[in-house]
């Protein structure tokens, strides 16, 4: 504990004493994020159907759009997993390439989300329309904001990887952003199910 003695074996991100600490801390942070998003889901569920004079959700939600966004995130989660796998094989080039693919998919997702929001606003459903639409835009928007933050963060990591190479510190950071990215996918699964799919049937 006293030393920055690096272990010689094990995944790179765990080799320094602060590696496991940070990763555990980040898992705990993700647990807090679970509660954060669950509060948004609870709000959405309680305010469900409160459209006021605005357009109801089932008239606007479309399956192709929701599915496309879902697949973009699912694939990006997969490529992110591969990136971390590459890191554990200590392949810097593979890591950077897969991270860039992940980033591109994430940007694609964001593009679709922005397009979707703009579309809804044109149809007269804005964040100020009614309780339901406030909850909808806040829930999906918070997720979108997390993805945006992830994109910037991931860019910073890629720059660091290219400049400083695969050190234990940067490996730890990469592993953490990987966790973050997968977590956003998990949240999206619930948004897809609880918001889009249920919104289409009820």
């Amino acid at each position: 504990m006293s030393e920055h003695a690096e272990l010689k074996t094990g995944p790179l991100e765990y080799r320094r004493e602060d590696g496991p600490l940070t990763i555990l801390g980040f898992w705990i942070f993700l647990a807090a994020e679970v509660v954060l998003f669950s509060t948004l889901f609870a709000t959405y569920a309680v305010l469900f159907g409160r459209y006021g004079e605005a357009t109801p959700a089932h008239e606007l939600f479309e399956m192709p759009m929701a599915l496309t966004m879902t697949f973009l995130l699912l694939v990006s989660s997969f490529t992110c997993g591969i990136a971390v796998h590459m890191m554990r094989k200590e392949s810097l080039k593979g890591l950077v390439i897969w991270l860039i693919i992940t980033l591109a998919l994430g940007l694609g997702f964001l593009g679709f989300e922005i397009y979707e929001f703009v579309h809804y606003v044109h149809e007269g459903a804005t964040i100020q329309s009614s309780a339901f639409w406030s909850a909808f835009f806040t829930l999906t928007g918070t997720h979108g904001l997390h993805v945006t933050l992830g994109v910037f963060w991931c860019t910073a990591i890629i720059i660091q990887l290219i400049r400083f190479g695969l050190t234990p510190v940067i490996a730890r950071k990469t592993f953490v952003i990987g966790l973050y990215w997968h977590f956003l996918d998990v949240v999206w699964i619930f948004i897809f199910t609880a918001v889009y799919l249920i919104g289409m049937v009820v």
């Binding site: 709000t43 305010l47 459209y51 009614s130 309780a131 339901f132 406030s134 806040t138």
Partner: peptide
């Protein structure tokens, strides 16, 4: 927004 407001069916 209309989460907790009187108008817009907030709660």
């Amino acid at each position: 927004t209309h989460f907790f407001t009187l108008a817009g069916e907030g709660m």
